[in-house]
Every structure is written in structure tokens, then in C-alpha cells.
């Protein structure tokens, strides 16, 4: 194992070691997720077009997303009222439950030519430096691989329009140079990528 790999392994282990003390309860999360199943699927793999899958998302990502829905930085007519009723413990439990579910790539019609163009763009626009080379996400950064195409399009367009409310402004900044065609190509590449769970 090279020194660099060891450092990376240590870095990932460090985060896991620190975060585990505060992790939510998967079983409690399973019960609390029952009202979410109608849109997001019982195991967090959604089937309705436009609805994001939450299975295999990093727990910190889901938790921060719920915080943003609750405090109004992120707005959605369906999600905002749900999040408004959640306690901090509910959010931790739900996030832990979804993180523990194996993700599946969404069965959807994806344009291979667009996806090939999107693969180039993902490198040019540094998507992989936070979302990881396989787009599986990490920490507060979501898994994009195998996600619902319509949802990916909606979010990327919202970041471009500066209405998506990201934590540190990184995605809003990253989306500014994207053309409508770029967004389309990127979303197709993300949607077609195999859905491996986050580390």
C-alpha cells in the first residue's frame, strides 16, 4: 500500500471514527421512514420519475439536506412541510437508515451519446473531486451515480439559477459556467453510472 493510499485510508477512517459516535439508529430510522416510502421507496430506491433515491446516500448528506429543508435554505412544496416536523434525532435516524440501504441504478432511458459527452464534462468541471471518481459521494457530498435523471436535471438547473441553497456555495459556483446542453449531458452521465454505495 503506497503512502498516499495509506494517508487516504487513514483520512477516511478518521472521519468514520469521529462520526460514528453521533450516528443515528438504523432501526428507528426504518420505522420513521415509513411516510417517506410513497415517494422515495421503502428501501430508499425511488421508482417515481423525478423523485430522488436516498438509498446509499452518505448519512451526512441526507442529514444536511433535511436541515436545509427545515430551516428554509432549500425549498420544496412536498419536502418542506415534512422536514418542518422532524427533530434532530429523527434526521439522524432517517439518514442512518437510508445510508445503510444498498442503492440501485434507476431503470430509465438514458442517451448514450449525451452520457459520453457528460463524462468528459464531469472531468472538466471537477465533479469527481468532491463526488469521487465513481460519483458515489462522501460525507456531506451526495451520490450522483444512478440517480433519477429528471431529479438531476432539476437540481443542476436550480444550482445554475442560484436557487438551490447549497451549504458553502460550491455547487452554485460550479454550475455557473454550465450551458443547458452541458447540464443535459452531465445528468445523463450521472444517471447511467453504476450506483455503488458511498464509503
Amino acid at each position: 500500500m503506497s503512502l498516499r493510499l495509506m494517508t487516504l485510508a487513514l483520512f477516511v477512517w478518521t472521519l468514520a471514527a469521529v462520526s460514528s459516535a453521533q450516528a443515528g439508529d438504523v432501526d428507528a430510522g426504518r420505522r420513521k421512514a415509513e411516510p417517506c416510502a410513497a415517494c422515495h421507496g421503502a428501501d430508499g430506491n425511488a421508482t417515481i420519475v423525478g423523485m430522488p433515491s436516498l438509498a446509499g446516500q452518505p448519512a451526512w448528506f441526507t442529514h444536511w439536506a433535511l436541515i436545509k429543508f427545515r430551516d428554509g435554505r432549500r425549498k420544496d412544496p412536498v419536502m418542506s412541510p415534512f422536514a418542518a416536523r422532524l427533530s434532530d434525532v429523527d434526521m439522524a435516524d432517517l439518514s442512518a437508515y437510508y445510508a445503510a440501504q444498498p442503492p440501485r441504478r434507476r431503470p430509465q432511458a438514458v442517451d448514450a451519446a449525451k452520457a459520453a459527452a457528460g463524462k468528459e464534462l464531469a472531468s472538466l468541471h471537477h465533479c469527481t473531486s468532491c463526488h469521487r471518481p465513481d460519483l458515489s459521494g462522501q460525507n456531506q457530498v451526495p451520490r450522483l451515480a444512478g440517480q433519477d435523471l429528471e431529479y438531476l436535471l432539476k437540481l443542476l438547473r436550480a444550482y445554475k439559477a442560484q436557487t438551490a441553497g447549497d451549504l458553502e456555495g460550491l455547487m452554485t459556483q460550479a454550475a455557473q459556467p454550465l450551458s443547458a446542453a452541458d447540464i443535459e449531458n452531465l445528468a445523463h452521465f450521472m444517471a447511467i453510472s453504476p450506483a455503488s454505495p458511498a464509503p
Partner: peptide, 13 residues
């Protein structure tokens, strides 16, 4: 490089 800013946990300890 594996170096990146230390992520902020979503829960207080």
C-alpha cells in the same frame, strides 16, 4: 492528493 477540508458534521456531539 487526499487532502480536503474537514467536513462539518450535521449533528453536535
Amino acid at each position: 492528493s487526499p487532502l480536503a477540508p474537514v467536513a462539518a458534521p450535521p449533528t453536535p456531539t
